Amino acid sequence: MAERFPGTIIVSAVNDPLVEAAHLYKRFDKLQAVDDVSLSIDPGETYGLLGPNGAGKTTAISMIAGLLEPDSGTVTVAGTQIKPRSTQGREAIGLVPQDLAIYPDLSAEENLMFFASLYGMSKRDARARADEVLEVIGLADRRKERTSKYSGGMKRRLNIGIGLLHSPRLLILDEPTVGVDPQSRNAILESVEALSGGGMAVLYTTHYMEEAERLCDRIGIIDSGRVVAEGTTEQLISRVGENDRVRIEVTGSVDAAIGHIRDISGVVEASTEDHAIVVMADDGSRHLPAVINHLVDGGAQVGSIEVTRPDLEAVFLHLTGKALRE
């Protein structure tokens, strides 16, 4: 048994996935929104769906949550197949949608008590659970305040709290940091880290690369309805190589220098690109002085310098041909 956070215990078989989605398809008229998506999530794992707006993230999680019926494919959560026309297995899922689902005239505590009543919880259990959730989302000291006075980030955290009330084994978070300030965003990410670290499975959709890198044990990159790659951050980055990209603006001829630059140990490639030289190297910053010396010795004048290390943005660009936030 593993303690998720105060008041909840989960039991799971070792190496037994909590979530299994297999070959999900969904079409809206002429748009193939989800195209053969499969994924699995283990207890205590945070799985990220990373992709731009319109990639199919929300449609995919709506099918996993049982809100939307797939054209074909199956979803199993905690051993139960999830179907939109059945409530069976729904108690294992907590869904936090992009749109806020709170009542502004009620306090955080009153919101939680109201939603707990919808789950059929007794007042005693609801009170105890609300206390636990308020601690998890960092709103215990503002529990009596009307939520109309909350910042956007505080409302987002309360939205997460509502999804946690019934102690789900899977928490689905759909773009939970959209439109919040940096401080509130960090508080939300800290809450998510605490939940997954305590044993809850988390399915997290985002188009923010840095969130996926920080939170997710594994990441599925989704584009045009398809998961085009999946793995840990390190595994995904290895698909585009471990080399840094160094771009140096230059004026004058680089012909005399480029051959010498290619001969530098650790430099994989050197080429010209729109009044610049681009060098691929295993450690761009370390090789930069030697590259500049060859350019200057060859008569070129060096301008701006940019060193780009491989990251998920580079992976997405490599796999899809477009930037993550396009």
Rank of each mutant, 00 (worst) to 15 (best):
I162G: 00
M121S: 04
L118Q: 11
V133L: 07
T147F: 10
F115N: 12
D125R: 07
E135K: 13
G94E: 07
Y103N: 00
L118S: 06
R90P: 10
R85L: 14
L164I: 00
L100K: 13
S148M: 14
Y119G: 08
F114E: 15
K123L: 10
S86T: 12
G94F: 12
F115H: 09
N111H: 00
P104R: 08
A130H: 05
G161H: 01
A140I: 12
F115K: 09
I160R: 04
D105N: 04
I93S: 08
K155W: 11
N159S: 06
S117F: 08
Q88E: 15
G138N: 05
V96M: 01
Q88S: 15
E132A: 12
R129I: 01
M154P: 01
A108W: 01
R142L: 15
R156G: 13
Y150L: 04
V96P: 01
I93F: 10
S148P: 04
G161Q: 07
T87V: 13
L118N: 13
G89D: 05
G163F: 01
T87K: 12
P84Q: 09
R85I: 09
I160N: 03
D141A: 07
L112K: 02
I137V: 15
G89V: 06
R143L: 07
R124G: 11
S122L: 08
G89Q: 05
K144R: 15
E145Y: 01
V133D: 03
I102L: 15
E135Y: 03
L139H: 04
K83I: 10
L158F: 08
A130L: 03
G120H: 05
Y150F: 15
G138I: 00
S167G: 03
I93G: 09
T147M: 05
L100Q: 06
Y119V: 04
S148R: 14
M121K: 04
P104S: 10
E132Y: 07
G153A: 14
R85F: 13
T147Y: 10
R85G: 13
R127Q: 08
K149S: 14
L164A: 02
P104Y: 13
A108K: 02
M121P: 00
S107G: 01
D141L: 08
R127K: 11
L95K: 07
R124C: 06
R127M: 11
I102A: 10
Q88R: 15
L158A: 00
S117T: 10
M154I: 06
K144H: 14
D131F: 05
Q98Y: 06
A92M: 08
P104F: 08
Q88N: 14
D105H: 14
L158T: 02
D105L: 06
G163I: 07
L139K: 02
N111M: 02
V133Q: 03
L134H: 08
K149G: 11
V96F: 00
V136D: 06
M121W: 02
T147G: 02
G161W: 03
P104C: 07
D131H: 09
K123N: 09
S117K: 11
L134Q: 11
I137R: 07
R142H: 12
F114D: 14
G138L: 02
R124Y: 09
G89P: 00
D105A: 07
E110M: 06
A108N: 00
T147S: 04
